[in-house]
Structures are given as C-alpha cells and as structure tokens.
C-alpha cells in the first residue's frame, strides 16, 4: 500500500493556476457584459473557499493558493479581459 504524499508546493501552485483559470472565465463574462456582478462573485467565492480550506491542515496549501490567486488575477487577468473586451467592442 502506498502512503499518499503531501506536497505543499505542488498543491499551492496548482491552486493558484486553478484560481487563475476560474477568474479568467468569470472576469471574461463580467468584461463581456454578461453580468456586472460576475467579477465580485468570482472574488467572493474564491476567497470563501480558500479561507474554508485553510482550516484543514491537508488542504491549507490549496486554500492559500486560491486566496493568493485573487490579487494575481485582479492584477493580470482582469486587465487582459477588459483590454480584450475593449478591442472587440
């Protein structure tokens, strides 16, 4: 029987990338004008999920990664989505 290994580094950066992609979908929808609340919803959901995961030791790195993806996505993804929306409109 193999013992499952716990890698904080891997979990953290995987969660950052997942959070990044998740934001791209939501922010893209918000920038395209589907619903203005999509951007706020994306941040609130991701923050909530990340904070909840931080209460469990095995999920702490994933939670921290999700929370960390919030400012990264706000600084990068949001800018890209609104730039693309501006070009397309």
């Amino acid at each position: 029987m193999t013992v499952p290994t716990y890698s904080a580094v891997k979990n953290f950066w995987t969660a950052v990338i997942i959070g990044f992609v998740y934001s791209a979908v939501f922010y893209g929808g918000g920038a395209a004008g589907l619903h203005p609340g999509l951007v706020i919803a994306a941040v609130a959901l991701k923050l909530g999920a990340g904070i909840y995961m931080c209460f469990f030791r095995e999920w702490r790195a994933v939670g921290a990664g999700l929370i960390t993806s919030v400012p990264i996505a706000v600084m990068i993804v949001l800018t890209i989505c609104f730039a693309i929306a501006a070009v397309l409109s």
Binding site: A8, V9, F12, A64
Partner: peptide, 8 residues
C-alpha cells in the same frame, strides 16, 4: 514552504 506560501 509552509511558511513561505503565506509570505507570497
């Protein structure tokens, strides 16, 4: 890294 992730 368990500490470093909070610093990041």
């Amino acid at each position: 890294f368990e500490q470093m992730m909070w610093v990041i």
